[in-house]
């Protein structure tokens, strides 16, 4: 939004500097004033978005730490059982991309898309499930043939477990049987850096084939439930962490945008004052020469 709105201002700024050499300075003066006004408005908008994102960030971060704990606890079973993804013998891989619907938050969505494209280069026949409009648009352009499902309405608020469950339900209803399911999400490293990372959700076979599987006493029927449940746990974790990353990225992006708008405002203010003075000086010169000419 900022870039789109600022573009005419930039263009006009270039025009203003080329026109300031010309004698007609009245028009540029008014133009500069208009531009200043619009940049001020943009700064207000980005600033407000920053404030909103900062307040949301706190809640999102709390949800993230909780859900991370939750997801890791759920994965302890697989760590103890030393579950490993099955080596692909013709079986398909499913990649779930946990992005969100809203933009204006720096490069976190394109980071995810890039990571997914890299994974697709390794396994070209993998299927993709996309959560969120942003990555859907990006991946839909480059590799739309791989997409089997897309979800929207993700990331309006802090993701709930009900969201994750519904997604996991739809994913498990897919006709293909997947050897491994990779959930790609943005890992929150610190407030300014995120990394697109995959987490693995194992298939039933992979769980049954894990080396330490005999340490657990479970029914065969319960295994399918565990798999579904683990998938929605991992999804919940990925969604919550992705949401926190998005908020923090948005806060940073809007912070930068407000700063840039502030820089532009000072620049235009100086340009405005200079032009105004030039106009006044020009008028004075005209009056004085006129007066001097009529005296004689």
């Amino acid at each position: 939004m900022l870039s789109r709105a600022a573009r005419p201002a930039l263009r006009a700024g270039a025009a203003a500097s080329s026109q300031s050499a010309a004698p007609r300075t009245y028009a540029t003066l008014r133009e500069i004033e208009q531009r200043l006004k619009s940049i001020r408005n943009i700064e207000k908008i980005t600033n407000t978005m920053k404030v909103v994102a900062s307040t949301k960030l706190n809640r999102a971060q709390r949800a993230m730490t909780e859900s991370r704990q939750y997801g890791q606890t759920s994965n302890t079973v697989f760590e103890q059982a030393e579950t490993k993804p099955l080596e692909g013998d013709g079986k398909k891989t499913l990649i779930i991309v946990a992005s969100s619907d809203k933009g204006l938050c720096g490069g976190i969505h394109s980071g995810l898309s890039k990571r997914v494209r890299r994974m697709l280069a390794e396994t070209p026949d993998a299927d993709i499930v996309v959560l969120g409009e942003k990555c859907k648009a990006q991946l839909g352009r480059s590799s739309s043939r791989n997409i089997v499902l897309s979800f929207s309405g993700v990331g309006k608020d802090i993701p709930t477990f009900a969201d994750a469950q519904a997604i996991a339900d739809q994913v498990s209803l897919l006709p293909t049987d997947y050897a491994s399911i990779q959930i790609v999400y943005n890992k929150f490293i610190n407030a300014t850096s995120y990394e697109a990372t995959p987490i693995e959700a194992f298939s039933e076979e992979a769980i049954a084939n894990s080396p330490n599987f005999s340490a657990f006493e479970i029914d065969d029927e319960a295994l399918a439930n565990l798999r579904e449940y683990a998938l929605s746990n991992s999804l919940f974790w990925a969604l919550a962490e992705g949401h926190a990353c998005e908020q923090s990225a948005r806060r940073n992006a809007m912070d930068n945008a407000s700063k840039n708008a502030g820089d532009m405002i000072t620049k235009y203010q100086i340009l405005f004052n200079r032009t105004r003075q030039a106009v006044i000086t020009g008028e004075l010169v005209e009056i004085i020469t006129g007066a001097a000419a009529s005296e004689e």
């Binding site: 839909g140 739309s144 043939r145 997409i147 089997v148 499902l149 897309s150 979800f151 929207s152 309405g153 993700v154 309006k156 709930t160 477990f161 009900a162 969201d163 469950q165 519904a166 997604i167 339900d169 739809q170």
Partner: peptide
């Protein structure tokens, strides 16, 4: 409020997005 879910989804076929449906209804 923690149990709310308003997701929408669409199935894709051969690189084309299908109809957008509500997840709750479909489930």
């Amino acid at each position: 409020r923690r149990g709310e879910m308003e997701l929408k989804f669409a199935k894709w076929n051969n690189g084309k997005q299908g109809e957008v449906k509500s997840v709750a209804d479909a489930n």
